[in-house]
């Protein structure tokens, strides 16, 4: 899969979760939103794994799976990525 599309899909899921998080802060009793949040969480884990397989860890401090060779410093930073 193309670099851009894996990342874009990841960003879409991340954005949906940000938006839902803010909504749930003020509407914690909305069970439909909680269900959607949980579904998106599953998608996030899968998409993050797909992206990390291509491009290395997304998160620091052990929150991403670590490849045998350390790559955190090598993969491009968000401001360096060309879309």
């Amino acid at each position: 899969m193309e670099y851009g599309s894996t990342l874009r899909k990841l960003q879409e899921i991340q954005f949906a979760l940000v938006e839902l998080q803010l909504y749930l802060d003020m509407n914690p009793d909305d069970q439909r939103a909680v269900k959607q949040y949980k579904e998106l969480t599953v998608q996030l884990v899968q998409q993050k794994q797909a992206y990390e397989k291509e491009r290395g860890p997304v998160m620091q401090y052990g929150h991403s799976s670590t490849p045998d060779r350390w790559t955190w410093h090598k993969t491009p930073w968000p401001w360096e990525i060309e879309y």
């Binding site: 851009g4 990342l7 874009r8 990841l10 960003q11 991340q14 954005f15 940000v18 860890p57 997304v58 998160m59 620091q60 401090y61 929150h63 993969t75 930073w77 968000p78 401001w79 990525i81 060309e82 879309y83």
Partner: peptide, 13 residues
């Protein structure tokens, strides 16, 4: 806080 190596949206100029 934990840093995530992605932007919230793609940025192109």
């Amino acid at each position: 806080w934990i840093y995530e190596k992605t932007l919230e949206i793609p940025v192109r100029v």
